[in-house]
């Protein structure tokens, strides 16, 4: 494992911890899109179908368990926890996320590396992850006061994607036959979706002002 990959995984882990900290400690999910969280839960559930069949490493299995467990518990918290539920910006979080599922699934049926159940589901998870942040970005645009934890959460998620691209570039030059167009293109699309957010995140940081996205 190279440094970019490890840093990417750690940023991803940090993003989840920041979100859990906000939800569990402050008992608030204000500014967090349940739609995006539900999509992430579906992403991990369809990607990690191999968790009990193919052993890669202890690290790999543990991280998979963490991402599965955290994504489903976040959804549970927002939907079912008495206090957290109250802080959910339901009226603002209106993105029709179910409409993303079918196109991603059809695309996975059409464009994949191998036409098997596991491989199609894995490809579906890549396509879905690429667009899963959209409801969250729309909600951020509508949020007047983006709190620090929410801003940091989205920043860490974007950083994780950026680091994965560096990891792919590194692997391309160091490993033979390392060419994977499907994850690369969907990963690139996913990272580009954060570009606008990053711009305003750094602007607010540079000017020491509260983060706000133009509507």
């Amino acid at each position: 494992m190279n440094i970019f990959r490890l840093a990417g995984d750690m940023t991803h882990l940090a993003s989840v911890l920041v979100l859990l900290l906000k939800i569990h400690t402050i008992k608030s999910c204000a500014g967090i899109s349940l739609k995006t969280q539900e999509l992430f839960a579906i992403v991990f559930a369809s990607r990690y179908l191999d968790i009990f069949t193919d052993f890669i490493s202890l690290y790999n299995t543990l991280m998979k368990l963490i991402f599965l467990g955290s994504s489903f518990s976040i959804v549970w918290y927002i939907r079912r926890h008495k206090l957290v539920r109250r802080s959910y910006d339901k009226d603002q979080d209106t993105f029709r996320h179910y409409f993303l599922l079918l196109p991603c699934f059809i695309l996975a049926l059409l464009i994949n590396e191998k036409f098997t159940f596991k491989e199609v589901m894995w490809t579906f998870s890549l396509y879905l992850e690429a667009v899963a942040i959209l409801p969250q970005l729309v909600l951020l645009q509508r949020t007047k006061n983006i709190d620090n934890l929410t801003g940091q959460y989205v920043f860490l998620l974007g950083a994780y994607r950026g680091l994965y691209i560096l990891n792919w570039i590194y692997r391309y030059f160091t490993e033979p036959h390392y060419v994977h167009w499907i994850p690369w293109i969907s990963g690139l699309v996913q990272t580009l979706l954060y570009a606008d957010f990053f711009y305003y995140y750094f602007e607010s940081w540079k000017n020491n002002k509260k983060l706000q996205l133009p509507a």
Partner: peptide
Amino acid sequence: SNDMNLKDEL
């Protein structure tokens, strides 16, 4: 193998 490369990522 090529396949293994891909699936060791999260």
